[in-house]
Design a protein around this nucleic acid. Structure first.
Lengths: 154, 154
DNA sequence: TGGGTTTTTATGGGATGTTATGGGTTGTAT
DNA sequence: ATACAACCCATAACATCCCATAAAAACCCA
């Protein structure tokens, strides 16, 4: 799982260290890198393991080949995805295109979301976090949670 | 189960001993650590075993990957969760972020809540306890008690 | 039951390992 | 050649490991 948040720095060569815990999770899945693409909803990047993108590709592919939606998803996600591989120090090189989408300059925030993570400009994320916390609190009862097993809410 | 409360001290390196009884319960579940995240409601930390967070992650992941709600929950809980592992003496290292949320400086209180536990600044907890006790007393008839669900004698 | 002994727990701190980061050098396409 | 990616080495900050000790709890046996 990708948990917690880590703020690291971009160097002059556009490299950034991926948090060790994220690397070790990816490594446990058999990967030495991950896939990133611009978020639909945010000025941020979405990131996940390669098999998750494969799954998404299959889902898109199950749509009718002549259906417009198919192209829209494929174009918006797959055509913009970059596969990023770690160097020997656990860093990745991020393209300018991706950095621009997230308006990242120097600092870069890795945000763990369980099966995926996001990459943010730290100050942008701070703003979003406030909204998210409010909305999550309002909707906390909407998350279906099987009480029979645990007998407790989150 | 996590029962009772224990007050321990933070050392200079931000380490704190986890109560032995909590450790042995986690160990019986197959873990050598736990997950902590800031509470929604209190100036305190929520803590639980890893499988509980995994379950939450799976629940969140069952939502459509492009749905906004997904982000709200994941951001508010998962991105703030830290997986804390015991060192060889049964201590964990707590990040400043978590300590600040709970306003913890030197002393740290572990509060057993059955399947989960909380981490408090001792004096904050004293205040909360008074309120909690009052409210529990007012609502004492509202606790639904159904032997069929638990299947256990007490 | 009481008092002495052993074991466990909480805590401190030095030594070692890891991580994030910087930068030089080599390799490789255009 | 030029640009840039990949590889290699260096280092400071800090996490983890290991050993030490004091207090508390559990044990044991007269």
């Amino acid at each position: 799982m990708f948990l917690s948040s880590y703020e690291n720095k971009l160097d002059k060569k556009r490299r950034v260290s991926v948090p060790a815990s994220f690397r070790s999770h990816l490594s446990s899945l058999g990967y030495n890198g991950f896939v990133a693409y611009p978020s639909f909803n945010h000025e941020a990047l979405e990131a996940c393991s390669e098999d998750r993108i494969k799954k998404l590709s299959n889902t898109i592919d199950s749509l009718n080949p002549f259906e417009e939606k198919r192209d829209y998803f494929a174009t918006s996600v797959l055509s913009e995805s970059m596969s990023l591989q770690f160097d020997s120090e656990g860093r990745v090189l991020i393209t300018d295109k991706l950095l621009n989408h997230a308006k990242i300059k120097n600092s870069i925030l890795f945000v763990g979301l369980g099966k995926t993570f996001q990459i943010w400009e730290p100050k942008s994320f701070e703003k979003f976090k406030i909204v998210a916390r409010k909305k999550a609190y309002q909707n906390r009862s909407n998350l279906k949670w099987d009480n029979k097993l645990t007998g407790e809410k989150i």
